[in-house]
């Protein structure tokens, strides 16, 4: 009798577990299938495509020839890789630094706080095609407003998006200092795009920083203040360390966002003047030349490298984060 009861119980429990599992799989099916088909499968499929001479339609199997073409010294791929890395190294710290400052400024009792927040967040919600078209016209060297203002102030107008010389070269030539060729720095066009990118994302980053700031217990500040700490001390000794998880995650999101960056570069320069990032290079091969095989090979090469760099970087940076 007792044995029988226990058996029924386990059977009931077992069938409940089975039912729960079935329900779970049912609930997961749509999301997981979509992700498998449209995110995982394309990775495999892309590899297959990359082995073909594929112009408009697949023509013939050529093994790793697309990779060989892409890997030639001095090829577009290497340039794109360099540009992507410069873009990231420039963009992420500048964005986060300004966002952090803004967040600290706004994290006080202020009137019209939500106005500032909205004003800074607005670029993030705007279509990047539209806002990039606006910025491109502001940047226009001869008729753009930015250079008009510079001329009005009797300053040297710049080439902005049309300037392929490195910023260090420009600064050095402005000061009359000769500069070795390898130290030219990112092109002014790329820096102009970084400025635009900062304009777009700084509000978003700031909002997240504000959330992070809100999570820091105020008692810590009060205690420190009683002990006579000044603003800078508070910032350096409390805010920064306690904000480090936020900073870490934000930089992760930002790096991913920067790699994806496409629309605005496409609209503003189409990759001219040292702004051909990995995204732009791949897209042009596919969209302008219908070379799906070569584009896929490029995607594999570029993103393997970028993934390795990112992971390595975060393995290192992650250790510095205080939890």
């Amino acid at each position: 009798m007792a044995v029988e009861l226990r058996r029924t119980k386990t059977r009931a429990a077992h069938s409940r577990a089975v039912r729960e599992a079935i329900l779970a799989y049912g609930l997961l099916a749509p999301a997981v299938l979509l992700l498998l088909v449209f995110t995982f499968f394309p990775v495999v499929f892309g590899f297959a495509i990359s082995l073909y001479n594929w112009r408009i339609v697949p023509r013939n199997f050529i093994g790793f020839q697309n990779y060989a073409t892409a890997l030639q010294p001095g090829s577009d791929m290497w340039n794109a890789l360099g540009t992507t890395i410069s873009y990231t190294l420039l963009s992420v710290p500048i964005q986060l630094f300004i966002a952090l400052i803004l967040a600290t400024l706004l994290f006080q009792k202020l009137h019209g706080k939500s106005f500032f927040r909205v004003a800074l967040f607005l670029p993030y919600v705007t279509s990047t095609v539209a806002s990039a078209a606006v910025w491109a016209r502001l940047y226009s060297p001869d008729i753009g407003l930015i250079n008009q203002v510079l001329r009005g102030l009797h300053l040297q107008p710049l080439g902005w998006l049309l300037e392929n010389r490195g910023v260090f070269t420009l600064i050095a030539s402005g000061l009359g200092v000769p500069l070795p060729a390898w130290l030219t720095g990112p092109s002014l066009a790329l820096v102009s795009i970084v400025v635009y990118t900062t304009w777009v994302f700084v509000g978003y980053d700031m909002t997240i920083f504000l959330a992070g700031l809100g999570n820091i217990p105020t008692e810590l500040y009060e205690a420190a203040r009683i002990d006579g700490a000044g603003g800078w001390d508070l910032f350096r000794r409390i805010t920064l360390p306690l904000l480090s998880p936020t900073t870490f995650f934000l930089s992760l999101i930002t790096v991913i966002g920067v790699f994806k960056a496409f629309n605005h570069i496409w609209v503003m320069t189409r990759g001219d003047n040292g702004t051909t990032t990995a995204s732009i290079l791949i897209y042009r091969q596919m969209y302008e030349f219908q070379l799906a095989g070569y584009a896929s090979a490029l995607a594999f090469l570029l993103f393997t490298v970028i993934l390795i760099i990112t992971v390595a970087q975060y393995q290192l940076a992650g250790r510095q984060v205080n939890y």
Binding site: L35, F41, A278, F303
Partner: peptide, 20 residues
């Protein structure tokens, strides 16, 4: 599996997805 899709860059899957 679900989380790792966050690690797959869009540009890697763009071309094959378009071909699909």
């Amino acid at each position: 599996v679900v989380l790792s899709t966050l690690m797959i860059p869009d540009d890697l899957t763009l071309v094959p997805r378009a071909v699909m």
